[in-house]
Write a protein that binds this DNA or RNA. Structure first.
Lengths: 190, 190
DNA sequence: CACCACGGAGAACGTACGTTCTCCACCTGT
DNA sequence: ACAGGTGGAGAACGTACGTTCTCCGTGGTG
């Protein structure tokens, strides 16, 4: 996700996390072996296991860092717009730009949840926390636009639906449909 | 998914598909081995491979049957309501009932796409087809309620968002939020 | 120059799983 | 009763992968 920006590619830990993010997000958690991450990060297997003592730990670190970066990128973008309805709509503009990135493959948390949520409690919790944090941010935006908690819930559904639909269809258009729906819902002053 | 109903549990093929659906949907595609399906279906491994010559074939059969049943169940429910806005809202009532089933775990297609969509073209195509068919059905409902294609797109986002949010949060409420948003969007006569 | 601790490359180990093979019990037809 | 074949149980095989271990080169220190 270029939108989110990259940290210094210097420290071994950062290189491992960069490689893990690209591979896990692009191909799925179980489809990527530790050896692929070793090869992509240029770190030795011994070092890799010193930093992340198991694949589970690495997966959770990947999700945690992605959550932070994803929300920081969104908030940096939207908070630059004037508070109110315009800032709410900025969320969908940001989504639209994200969907157009060539390696966009949907929500990392929804994908991870679908793959391992039933088996791996840490992954399920990461997805739950991510969605809850996203909803909290939207609730703040909705309040700033004179909307209620109900509006926040509806914006969350539109955003989530747009992400999933864009992923499966391969089109960025769902962001525009969601934006239009959000504008209509705010027009009512709900 | 009880909402969807079960076929006769008699033929070996039916028993295998029933077992595959319960296990694949509940735990994920890669987390379930062929041996678990053999054990759950009571069919021998030899028979299993006679009916479905590989796991890939079985996965695609599972997705295909689930697509048919899921949409048939939804349509049976919604088409019993009078055409117009009420029938559109029935979709969200049906979702609400689905979300409350104890083994609800989100959209089988979104989950499968997140897990194997990047690797397995058949899975990606199944997810794409399922979403396209669902959107076509919603477009028919939207038209019957005097709505446009744009309304259909927005209803799709609300439904998809509700499914994903309900799965991760473990709550059925997203169906109600989506229903309220759909009503608001139809109120505008868009 | 000799010693030693560290880190890297990749072999090794155990396990899980998709797929195939072997062997045996049972059922059929005469 | 008996020959033949059908199908089931589960062993066997190959592969992939998470994790650990071995061995070697290197770089710093007396």
């Amino acid at each position: 996700m270029e939108t989110v920006g990259q940290a210094k590619p210097e420290s071994p830990e950062g290189r491992v996390l960069d490689a893990a993010e690209e591979l896990f997000y692009g191909r799925g958690l179980q489809a990527v072996g530790m050896d692929a991450i070793r090869a992509a990060s240029g770190v030795s297997l011994k070092r890799l296991y010193q930093i992340f003592p198991s694949k589970d730990v690495l997966v959770e670190a990947y999700l945690s860092r992605r959550d932070e970066r994803w929300r920081a990128s969104l908030e940096r973008f939207a908070d630059a717009r004037p508070a109110g309805p315009e800032r709410v709509l900025a969320v969908f503009d940001w989504l639209h730009a994200w969907f157009r990135e060539p390696d966009f493959r949907g929500c990392a948390f929804a994908n991870s949840y679908g793959e391992l949520g039933a088996t791996h409690p840490g992954v399920a919790a990461a997805a739950r926390n991510h969605k809850a944090a996203f909803r909290r941010y939207l609730a703040g935006l909705a309040a700033g636009a004179g909307g209620s908690e109900a509006l926040a819930d509806q914006l969350l559904l539109l955003a989530e639906g747009a992400i999933g639909t864009a992923a499966v269809s391969g089109s960025a258009e769902p962001a525009l449909h969601a934006r239009a729906a959000a504008r209509a819902l705010m027009g009512e002053g709900s």
